[in-house]
Design a protein around this nucleic acid. Structure first.
Lengths: 210, 210
DNA sequence: CTATTTTTGTGCGATATGGTACAAAAATGG
DNA sequence: CCATTTTTGTACCATATCGCACAAAAATAG
């Protein structure tokens, strides 16, 4: 590992750019079906350099998953900032997620769904480290929705209901990812998501009923 | 391939039993991470016999996925028969699916989710045959819910709404599978599913509003 | 200019993989 | 009892895989 080196031959690659390229390879093929040669070709690096910089294939994958979770969280958070009110925010977040799942984002231009749901899910039954990572990912999604709902309802909804609704919304997101990778159109998914938010988001006790 | 042979050395294995064992191997490891040696060990057959009986690894996998879809459909249909009324039927189906996803069925005793969602989803981006199969699977789930809802509402709900609700329920099922494989408890999933059905199943125009 | 440090890249090696050739085995037909 | 048919199982092949050894390359420190 290096942190801030001055001496020695300089690197020919940018770490972030390379990680993004590695991400795309795993995103398309999944973990097991991806070979280090494919990664080497996609990044322009050779295997020893990859290994020196990012560790084993498994290390790379876990790094990339964590990175994706961070980027996704920021991306969805930003989408939520574009409007106000719980349901509008949730709908904006869902719409952004669907765009990403369908290849309409700067992350990925193919309809590969969510990196974690599409590729990590398969691996969790074999490797405890992957299982742990998957649990973290799901928990993070739940937590993200929980925080948003709590903030937007400010005490008018019991905490248990907040968490419950958050899990429902995560559930929807997982389903949307699966269907996106299965080839469903963006428009169809957007319709489904919009109505799902209307039905599953908590109502803050008294509000204008549409 | 054989259909009804009389001459020749008799087989030492039962085709259905063997296919079920192959299914379990793919279910746990996924397609790419499963080796023919693992299948050979799990079935007690050797690779040439496997190849002669079921074709290539890909052939086996597709056979197993189709078989699973058939078995799953029958299993869920039967679960729906245990009660009457749309929502009770849907809840019974969801409960049965969750049992299966969490390893509480005769199909599988581990929490591996849905075979197709957990393992096929990963592969669809690389192989058009897998993509086609995935589309079929999703369509079949939608169709199953569509038929049930239409039968139980008998014209009181417009066809478009029937199909839309069916897609919502499929979406929930996909999400439940993901969360089951991620380790979520059966009880938690059952709660989520029950409320989701209440919120997403269509109301037949005029009915007792809870 | 020399020593040191870090990255690069060729090439290797041990293993695993999917698929198949081929002979032995085990049944039936005549 | 012999020919035929089908399955079995050992052995094999070509290829792919991951990881690493090792020397050359490219920078800095003094």
């Amino acid at each position: 590992m290096k942190t801030e080196s001055k001496r020695g031959r300089p690197r020919k690659f940018d770490e972030d750019v390379t990680l993004d390229r590695i991400m795309l390879v795993f995103w398309q093929h999944g973990y097991a079906a991806t070979s280090l040669d494919q990664i080497a070709e996609a990044t322009g690096l050779n295997r020893p350099s990859l290994y020196a910089a990012f560790g084993s294939k498994k290390d790379m994958y876990l790094k990339v998953i964590s990175r994706f979770a961070d980027q996704m969280q920021a991306y969805l958070h930003e989408a939520g900032q574009s409007t106000s009110g719980l349901k509008p925010k949730l709908k904006a977040i869902m719409a952004a997620a669907i765009d990403l799942y369908c290849g309409k984002s700067s992350f990925c231009n193919a309809a590969y769904g969510c990196l974690a749901i599409s590729t990590l899910t398969t691996e969790v039954a074999d490797d405890p480290d992957f299982k742990t990572m998957m649990e973290h990912i799901v928990q993070r999604m739940d937590q993200g929705f929980t925080d948003l709902i709590r903030a937007e309802t400010t005490g008018t909804v019991p905490e248990a209901s907040v968490r419950f609704a958050a899990q429902h919304l995560s559930l929807i997101l997982h389903g949307l990812s699966v269907r996106a990778r299965a080839g469903e159109s963006r428009a169809a998914l957007q319709e489904l998501a919009e109505v799902a938010v209307d039905r599953l988001a908590p109502e803050p006790a008294s509000d204008s009923v549409v």
